[in-house]
Design a protein around this nucleic acid. Structure first.
Length: 640
RNA sequence: GCCGGCAUAGCUCAGUGGUAGAGCAGCUGAUUCGUAAUCAGCAGGUCCGGGGUUCGAAUCCCCGUGCCGGCUCCA
């Protein structure tokens, strides 16, 4: 007998080899279809996996993140079975659960069509209805190899060959479909509830563009049809918030083919929004001891050779021949900042030096990756280079982290932190990389921030911390980044004179807070769904006179508000009030001020808010002061 | 860059081998109105570009460009 301890519950003696499913039932845990797997001493197992020794057991329910993931993974297997039965000769590659669903990659002679998607979905429904058990079986390496070789599943064979020899191999089978899989899975196909196939796309085998392009089918699955429905509605909401759509509707920006793909043209309201953000940035950087600098748009190619960009980044750069000399258009702002540092002898007393530039850069992004404002070829970074001593590195990084979090709080973003380490293609010594990586880790530790490590994801010149901010729909965007660089100071022979009178090598940090202003604006538009807070709203107030009789009064109010610094518009078109309100509402203007005979008489205002709230008969001065206050550029609260 | 889809009026879209359409937006006029669309009229097109098939191409084929969804890359 073995002792089964229910997590946070009673325990019980069971015969050796009892299944978690049976044990849970005996322990009084309802054996309905909400329980899809078991957690045994923290390890996720099938409900049918025999238990051999004393353990702590907990049910994994469909409404938990793990339960949902297991069900989605099982749905991927069902999709693969459906595809194989409908498309004989297809080879299956890999099919995991992902954040909002699952996918499976297939090697097929002809790409799938949207009609195929419907057929596959139908076949999956049949498989689910048959409620086939997911049977697990451990096999030897040879047996597994033979099985997949016989089936011609070359991708599975390749996966097998990469699995360490000492690792146990398991197969999962439902119906006559067998897949190599670690598991666990739901007990049977009937556990897969509400699912839907969402899209088709190409994907390289193992993400390598030199390997075959496979066809990837995406799907999603939820515990209930209602949750699936909610998810689909969330996708609809994301579409409504899409900054490309709102950018046009709100008159913020254009991206025109005739101007060039990935080239943003700011319309008046978009340009205003951006300059408000820039004003905020300049003020915050000056407050924190940064110095504003400006570099040229292109620099001689020799400088890019010296910096390492020629060798490591040339493919992403634009060049221009001027008379006899080749110039590189800057893809980064650091090189000019190096020259600023070198413009005179530096003392340790000056360090840290913090050079800030709203620097416009051009990068030749591959054509398939461009996307609205979030991926463009010309963008402006809120870039700074901090040059300091080795001893100052960690506290400078901590300072930048604090800066980032104070700014994120103002815009109302949540975020995640990632630390990226040395990539394959890189410059610098092992010792330098280690020193830099430790400094970044140290700062994260000082602020006790949780973070993920991304091995090999660093920049070619140094490791980095990325802050991925999450928008209102929980999508992640990389904006802020802090990168250590021990190599550029060396390449440009930066030195400072220390207390000992000797020249020493400083360390450099590259960092951005918002990242690309274009990208940040795109994310901001989606985050606020176009309804910007008053301090960022391109138009804060629109005056809506009801009849011609009050146009003079409206004009007077307009002039007063302008003089008071409000961003106000006056709509004197001969349209109905309802019509004007609707338009202002769709433009998401914070305050719509209705002006009729009553207001002209009493010299008051009747503002309507975007949320439909109406304020009656408000004194003019009170309203102006209110909007002035709300429109003030916010000052960050100290985060720590 | 790669895979797939798409490209018709400013926007959203209909039109599938036989005379280019609708709604919204725009313009003109009427309406002077109290919180999300007043009415009428007018104008608006190299059907993405180039080549081909055909008596005839928005429609079929080829090439190119751009966009969309992914992959890869990344602020």
């Amino acid at each position: 007998m073995i002792k089964i301890q229910l997590e946070q519950g009673p325990s019980r003696e069971e015969p050796e080899g009892v299944t978690p499913g049976q044990a849970l039932k005996d322990l009084g845990v309802a054996a309905d279809r909400q329980v899809v797997a078991a957690s045994v001493d923290g390890e996720l197992l099938d409900l049918t996996r025999p238990l051999e020794r004393d353990c702590t057991l907990a049910p994994v329910r469909l409404d938990s993140p793990q339960g949902l993931e297991i069900m989605r993974h099982s749905a991927a297997h069902v999709m693969a079975e459906a595809v194989r039965s409908l498309f004989p000769g297809v080879k299956i590659a890999i099919g995991p659960a992902i954040e909002a669903g699952f996918y499976y990659d297939f090697d097929v002679p002809e790409p799938f069509t949207p009609e195929d998607l419907a057929r596959i979905e139908k076949r999956m429904a049949q498989i689910v209805k048959r409620n086939l058990p997911f049977a697990r079986r451990e096999v030897s390496r040879d047996e597994a190899l033979r099985l997949f070789q016989d089936q011609g599943e070359t991708y599975k064979v390749e996966i097998l060959e990469d699995i360490p020899a000492d690792q146990a191999l398991s197969l999962y089978q439902q119906g006559d479909f067998v897949d190599l899989c670690r598991g666990p899975h739901v007990p049977s196909t009937g556990y897969i509830k509400a699912f839907k196939l969402t899209s088709i796309s190409g994907a390289y085998w193992r993400g390598d563009e030199h390997r075959p392009m496979l066809q990837r089918l995406y799907g999603t699955a939820f515990a209930t049809p209602e949750e699936l429905q909610r998810h689909l509605e969330l996708l609809e909401e994301a579409k409504r918030r899409d900054h490309r759509r709102l950018g046009r509707e709100l008159g913020l920006f254009l991206i025109e083919e005739e101007a060039g793909p990935g080239m943003v043209i700011y319309l008046p309201k978009g340009a205003l929004l951006r300059s408000l953000i820039e004003d905020f940035e300049r003020r915050e950087h000056l407050r924190r001891g940064y110095q504003i600098v400006m570099g040229p748009q292109m620099l001689k190619a020799d400088l890019w050779k010296r910096s390492g960009h020629w060798d490591n980044y040339r493919d992403n750069m634009y060049f221009s021949q001027v008379e006899e000399t080749l110039y590189g258009i800057k893809p980064m702002n650091c090189v000019a900042h190096m020259l600023i540092y070198k413009s005179r002898v530096r003392s340790y007393r000056e360090l840290p030096l913090r050079f800030f530039e709203l620097g416009t850069v051009l990068r030749h992004e591959r054509s398939g990756v461009l996307h609205g404002l979030t991926r463009v070829r010309q963008f402006t970074q809120d870039d700074a280079h901090i040059i300091c001593t080795e001893e100052q590195v960690e506290s400078e990084i901590t300072g930048v982290l604090d800066f980032v979090f104070e700014v994120m709080a103002i815009f109302g973003f949540e975020y995640e932190v990632e630390l990226s380490t040395r990539p394959e293609k890189s410059i610098g010594s092992d010792a330098e990389w280690e020193l830099a990586t430790n400094a970044l880790k140290g700062a994260l530790k000082t602020r006790s921030l949780p973070y993920h490590i991304c091995e090999g994801e660093g920049a070619f010149y140094g490791p980095k911390i990325d802050i991925k901010l999450k928008d209102a729909l929980q999508r992640r965007w990389q904006c802020a980044t802090i990168q250590c660089d021990f190599t550029l100071p060396e390449r440009f022979d930066l030195t400072y004179v220390a207390a000992d009178g000797q020249r020493h090598r400083p360390v450099m940090l590259h960092r951005v807070i918002l990242g690309s202003l274009e990208r940040f604006m795109g994310v901001l538009v989606e985050h606020y769904a176009g309804a910007f807070p008053v301090w960022l709203a391109p138009v804060q107030v629109v005056l809506l006179p009801i009849t011609d009789r009050v146009h003079d009064y409206a004009q007077e109010i307009y002039d007063l508000m302008r003089a008071a610094g409000l961003r106000v518009e006056l709509d004197t078109r001969p349209e109905t009030l309802r019509y004007k309100i609707r338009e202002a509402q769709m433009q998401k203007i914070p305050y719509m001020v209705v002006i009729g005979d009553r207001e002209a008489e009493s010299r008051t205002l009747s503002p309507r808010l975007r949320d439909g709230t109406e304020w009656k008969d408000m004194p003019l001065e009170t309203f102006i002061e209110w909007v002035q206050e709300e429109g003030r550029i916010p000052t960050p609260a100290k985060s720590r």
